[in-house]
Design a binder for these strands. Structure first.
Lengths: 240, 240
DNA sequence: GCCTGTTTTAAACGTATGTTTGAATCATAT
DNA sequence: ATATGATTCAAACATACGTTTAAAACAGGC
């Protein structure tokens, strides 16, 4: 009733349609990153894209579906590339065990390639992703969970083989910490102005960033198991 | 002209004033965390607080100043507590070097105490903080930088003494990674549903969380120095 | 019991919100 | 050339936005 479910002419997408949809996606990507989902208006987006206000509802159905389309456009290929790269590494080192470093590289390299490709989202998209991670809106959380689930499962089993002594439960927690450091770093929001003191020529050099983050995370993954026995914590004991 | 700069009767803050201001702060804290700064309206806040719409502008001046007041109310005491605890540890181990574990504890324990105090913000506030970290609005970034600067500087020099072999530049990066993992974990947004598979009785046990996160971060801080010499990266070589 | 300064209130300012609608425009296949 | 389905468009829906204003209600000191 409201909009055609799918295009009925699959032969050649008329150019104007692709242009309109892509311009909406581009404008949405930039504005959602700047203002967040809720505070970005369709009027801002359609004005920036140079299209009619009704075009979003016509082409995407709703503001929520547009937001999901904005994320899917970059996230789907990036996560697919991650899994492909991981499988490439696994074939490369045929029977042998894959090192944590290489598994981490399979996560990072596709993200870095995306960050460098300024024509297609680039850093802006990674910042948008960082915002989406922190948004408690249920539809965003459900969407991200489903979008990431297959890739996370794949990497979890890879890390599980690389760290055979690490209990499953402990691994899940460490992946949680890892994703935190990674998304925070890739989003590059620099909330605490830590980077301000660094050499400005070095800021924005994603290459060196990966080379610094990887050893940090590998060491974290390989850290000795925590001592969970004692019932009272330092926090409770150290009441000054 | 618009509002009185400060109260001119310092003897006994009339109860109604404190009630109104605090109810606005409470409502703002909850709503800012749910919808973000921009998408939260003063009408939502004042309705939830049961006060008149104009009360925000009267007591705080503007929506932005209210937001800063919401953050300051919890952040100021928490960061002060962190520094005090660090100094307490330093006195305790008088001349000797402070271990990374204890420095980390000085960062974590005040945050955990805040997370547990549900009557006064609790977890909700830490989630709001996680959202604020990811918000690129300039006034939020400036505010957070200035709010954290003294505490970060204090801990940076403490870590610097605990890790004497680590170059300053490297330490700043590792603090960046550390803050990422920490804020992501404390915000507990669980963007990727990693925790869903964990024992539900364990979810929400902040005590064990600290015991798991600390070894991860300590190992990361003490990781071997990265090899930054090679000019071509794995990312460029591994083009499959 | 007026007087003074603080706080609350209702109303109004101009502007913006997501979505729907029905008619106009376009491209193409017959 | 005409019919057809996809796309665009301007207008309208009821509702919400942050801030300002001037009057009302309240407090405590004298």
């Amino acid at each position: 009733m409201t909009r055609p479910a799918t295009k009925s002419l699959p032969l050649a997408e008329t150019r104007d349609q692709r242009d309109t949809k892509e311009r909406i996606l581009d404008a949405g990507e930039a504005l959602f990153m700047e203002h967040g989902f809720e505070a970005t208006s369709l009027r801002q987006i359609t004005a920036a894209a140079g299209v009619n206000l009704a075009a979003v509802n016509y082409h995407f159905g709703s503001k929520e579906e547009l937001f999901q389309a904005v994320l899917t456009r970059r996230l789907d290929p990036m996560n697919a590339e991650r899994v492909l790269l991981l499988e490439h590494y696994e074939r490369e080192t045929a029977g042998q065990m894959l090192s944590c470093e290489r598994i981490l590289n399979a996560m990072f390299i596709p993200a870095l390639r995306l960050a460098r490709d300024n024509q297609r989202g680039g850093k802006n998209f990674l910042r948008l992703l960082g915002r989406a991670y922190a948004d408690p809106a249920p539809f965003i959380r459900h969407f991200l969970s489903e979008q990431y689930a297959p890739m996370i499962a794949r990497f979890k089993s890879a890390f599980s083989r690389a760290l055979p002594h690490l209990p499953k439960k402990e691994l899940v927690w460490r992946l949680h910490f890892l994703m935190g450091a990674m998304s925070y770093t890739l989003a590059g929001t620099d909330a605490l102005k830590l980077i301000a003191e660094l050499n400005p020529t070095e800021t924005g050099n994603d290459e060196l960033l990966l080379r610094r983050l990887a050893p940090f995370l590998v060491a974290g993954l390989q850290a000795p198991l925590p001592d969970l026995q004692e019932s009272r914590s330092e926090g409770e004991r150290a009441r000054a």
